[in-house]
Nucleic acid binder design. Structure first.
Lengths: 263, 263
DNA sequence: ACCGTTAAATGGTTAGACCTTTTCCGTTCG
DNA sequence: CGAACGGAAAAGGTCTAACCATTTAACGGT
């Protein structure tokens, strides 16, 4: 964690474009773009940083909060404000999509369709690029599914990890992030579906088909297998959903930068 | 615009989960989810709303700012704070993706690939579902491209509108939003490419191929035509890009909820 | 009746103070 | 000598109060 007490922080230009807090946001973003602030870095204390930028602390906080809302910064009381650590797969906040779903009345069919399109894309890419290690991981998760046919919750864990492994093997972190973003919203729904534990064996089989297509480096087969799997999953969900649930219930408090999830 | 001075606003629970401002965010989101706040509505003045929720104005402002950062609310000094109008195609803020690109060092190849995957998906769906009107719109834009082969900027306008028409015809607003999100980031790049105006005629031809495949309701052909078009566009861009531009330059000030863009 | 001026409404900013949580260091006890 | 406890310092979270800037709309004069 590089401590950055240099004179990186230029004072806000008086002839600023928009509002002061917008300028603060621009400044912080520029620091990130330039690489002055890197993932995991801790920002200077708010009081100091405010002085450096020549703004008041509430204004600085407004800017920090905006960036925190989009998942770039993270503040921990007593500890400090950090640039979000980019350890695992980068993850976009799904709450914007969630709100948009409510605002525009997105149907769950659209959600499923979007997820299907993204998963098909990553499956196709994974078939082209997956390394031996990545394929081994997928295989292990498939095996895990077969090993937990009588334990729905454990099955779901392997299910999610398999899809993440596929996404990782695609080599495209943007598609992976978008996929996770959509999948996160559908997660609560999925828990219910898996709980009913109807066709775990069939589901595991379909995952294996995906894995085999990827192993054979056959993009088209991988796409089709993934498509079939998700169509089946959607049908299973629709069969369960009696209540006219709009599928956009909001459980996550705060900014839902939850774990990446995908069945 | 419904004025909502009812007792919709419940006071913040004292046994709140996280921080106070997080609770404010949850409250506001809940109002939106429940439909108490609808697109275009104006929120009560901050001073009043703060009293209603039982929090101080800075805390309320923190919550509002978080939601504004993700594109749900929009504040205009002197006028008020509004729930973002959902008139046209819903649009996700692309700045989070932009920041993530800087943070993780995304390559432009990944960006192009993600865009290609999304555009292929919507093209396929559009081929299945496009209405006569939507196809007419696409046709007009293709004609517009042919009519402006000597005017790169005008060509780009038709280009963008064509892709938006295809996205609209897909009937999936989520995929459309994600596509626009990625396309927005690549827009600046695209302007340069089009400025050089190398193969406008060829580009127009490829757009027409996409259009024809959609008109013939042939999803596979549409996907392939779109894929070919974007591969070509990417090659054109790579040929121009001499400078080691990381493709993540940040032009947009504020929260870049700009227009949706796609060639 | 129309247009310009003005006043009210509303978000934006600042200042200072205090609270809560986290971190870390020093002391003390085993 | 080391580990556990305790407290002080650090840092973010919240609040009050006031003032500034912009927008809107009402008012009044022409």
């Amino acid at each position: 964690m590089t401590d950055l007490n240099h004179d990186i922080f230029k004072t806000i230009d008086p002839d600023r474009r928009g509002t002061t807090s917008e300028e603060v946001i621009s400044q912080l973003r520029e620091m990130i773009h330039r690489g002055d602030l890197r993932p995991g870095d801790r920002l200077p204390p708010e009081r100091d940083l405010a002085k450096m930028l020549g703004v008041s602390r509430p204004t600085l906080r407004a800017g920090i909060r905006s960036l925190a809302a989009v998942g770039v910064l993270q503040s921990r009381q007593g500890a400090g404000t950090f640039v979000v650590k980019a350890d695992g797969p980068p993850s976009l906040d799904s709450s914007p999509l969630r709100l948009m779903a409510s605002l525009h009345g997105f149907t769950s069919a659209e959600m499923f369709e979007a997820r299907q399109a993204l998963e098909m894309a990553v499956a196709g890419l994974a078939a082209e690029r997956a390394t031996s290690d990545q394929m081994a991981t997928m295989s292990e998760e498939v095996a895990g599914m077969f090993a937990s046919l009588d334990d729905p919750e454990q099955f779901l864990v392997h299910d999610v990890r398999f899809h993440q492994a596929v996404a990782a093997a695609s080599g495209n972190r943007i598609l992976t992030s978008l996929m996770n973003m959509v999948a996160t919203i559908l997660f609560d729904t999925r828990i219910k579906t898996v709980k009913r534990a109807t066709d775990l064996k069939e589901s595991a089989e379909m995952h294996r088909h995906v894995y085999r297509a990827i192993r054979e480096h056959d993009p088209e087969a991988a796409r089709h297998a993934m498509s079939a799997h998700l169509s089946k999953a959607q049908k299973a969900w629709e069969a369960e959903a009696d209540e006219p649930d709009d599928s956009t219930s909001d459980n996550s408090n705060g900014n839902g930068n939850g774990a990446a999830l995908a069945p």
